[in-house]
Amino acid sequence: MKPFEFFSPITLAEASRILADHNGQGRALAGGTDLLIRMKRKQWTPRAVVSLNRVAGLNEIALNGDLKLGARVTLNQLIRSQIIRAHFPVLAQTARNMAGVQVRTLATIGGNLCNASPSADMAPPLMALNARAVIIGVEGERIVPLDEFFVGPGKSVLQPGEILREILVPRPNDFTRASYHKLEHRQAMDIAMVGVGVSVQIEHRTSNIENCSDVRIVLGAVAPTPLRAKRAEEILRGNILNEENIAHAARVAAEEAKPIDDVRSSMWYRREMVEVLTRRQLMELGDSRLEIGD
């Protein structure tokens, strides 16, 4: 690692000021599971590392209306939280399929989002749940829908001096269901080849027919950023979740993906798998006989 100065402030305002003073040459440290690797490889050579470890309140999970997830909430905290298991099981399931236990002790939601990897596993389910990012900077606070948070590979809307404080997720109603499926080479310690997050709101019109009043489909690892498949959503919004509509929407979602060939998978395969994962999840979520949860 290149030399750097280490800071461990106790308020976000101070952390933000230190980062702003270093004018793009500072890095916030949350879990460190991405940051330290990049620093060891000298891909990133910050002059200041600002730990958020001692800032109070950043590891809180609270449900008062919206769900509030502090940026330093770890993946293991998500898995263990009663609030998450009861009301947002998709987030606990997603966390459980990331890395291994040791890394999950350290790795945080905020770190996963702020590193802005196209394959960040927390992004599709949180975007499917219509989450918002609360960002603190020297100038004050701003709230950005997570849909607009990612700019490109490794780039978010965060400016020098800005820090993600928390994620807000609207409380789902009784008719909301969400899931995230990740395709990987093995079941632990792997990065997604493709990840698809889906949420649906289902109005029960009669005992057999289910009308989908709202739907969000989010594709991971198949574009420069996590991507809403908006044309696919339009096909389903206000319509019946039957096999024909679902198959149509899944095909369109695959067309909306912009995958690349790389070491983990091919463009062709990723596109095919977007269709499969989208169709599979919509079929599961549309089937009221299935209990979705952990």
Binding site: F6, S8, L29, G31, G32, T33, L36, I37, V49, S51, N53, N76, G100, V101, Q102, V103, T105, L106
Partner: peptide, 21 residues
């Protein structure tokens, strides 16, 4: 995982923790 230790009783990869932190 060869460097796993308990930090405040939770397992962590100690190669990814800054000692300062």
């Amino acid at each position: 995982g060869a460097c796993t230790v308990l930090l405040d009783n939770e397992p962590v990869p100690s190669c990814l923790v800054l000692a300062a932190d």
